[in-house]
Design a protein around this nucleic acid. Structure first.
Lengths: 159, 159
DNA sequence: TATTGTTATACTCTATAACTATA
DNA sequence: TATAGTTATAGAGTATAACAATA
């Protein structure tokens, strides 16, 4: 591919690169803050060889014992095929189980194992610690404010 | 692999799947809110065959004319190899140009073209509209509060 | 020898279509 | 025929190692 033949003599390398208009966008701030919290949580969960989505899955299964894979997919905002390898992992590690439905033999009910319940208790504390550490610039009242504002954004039906 | 032989007769399918403890985590709320804003922006930018990262790149180039690819990579929080195909696209579409540095012929200065500047003006308005639409559950004061809280989280050096 | 940009590669995440087994 | 789960596959996004040209 052709490259421009021009040359620049004013390639001043700024010490810090500014973001300009991006800093006024909530979407941009959300992305950067979310990345920071996600990376903190990933690092902490890596000791358990777990990903954030697997932690979320365990928490959702605990809250909704016996739910079907399609329900779990919807709750995690992923497609049903993605649930399969994830649930396989959790089942291999004996943290969750698929149980055939008596009435409809096509579907499974998903449950936590005893080990899954025990581990989840530990993971909840880790996630909570991670949350606080990554938002240490805020005090508790500000965390509550932030949580309420974010909840209203994502809970609103359409937008 | 062996599957459990058990069967469940209490596979009550809940109408809505609850998240339980996840709803108390800022990281979880951040992820869901960020996803919502991102998808709104992706949909709007698709009319221009652009991704959010490309819009961010254009905005950063405008704010830092002549910056090098390594600087752009750092600002976008991506690795230098990822900048190459992205910048190739922008150059193919004549929105940005790479200009060989006179003093150091290894590096390029990156600049917006006139067309890039014009398009960016339009994109800024689109991004701003997208931001407001996806956060329509909040009023302007709440948007300002949210932006300040988020900025403090991601601007804090370590955490 | 070190640095800028690049290539090649791989691993994850995500999305879609097609298959199976039940219904 | 329709549905639950699964398989296969392909496309993004992301990360690392290795290479070319230049310093």
């Amino acid at each position: 591919m052709a490259r421009p033949a021009r040359t620049a003599d004013t390639a001043s390398t700024p010490a810090a690169v500014g973001e300009g208009v991006l800093e006024e966008l909530i979407g941009y701030a959300l992305r950067r803050a979310q990345l920071k919290l996600f990376q903190n949580l990933i690092a902490r969960l890596s000791a358990y060889d777990l990903r954030p989505a697997q932690f979320s899955a365990l928490a959702i299964i605990e809250q909704n014992p016996g739910l079907m894979q399609a329900d779990l997919a919807r709750a995690l905002a992923i497609e049903p095929p993605q649930v399969v390898p994830m649930l396989n992992k959790l089942e291999e590690r004996a943290l969750a189980v698929r149980v055939r439905c008596k009435p409809d033999k096509r579907s499974y009910g998903i449950f936590l194992s005893k080990a899954g319940e025990t581990l989840l208790k530990e993971l909840k504390q880790i996630a909570s610690d991670s949350d606080r550490e990554a938002t240490s610039a805020l005090d508790d009242e500000e965390r509550g404010q932030l949580l309420r504002l974010l909840s209203r954004i994502y809970q609103e039906p359409r937008g």
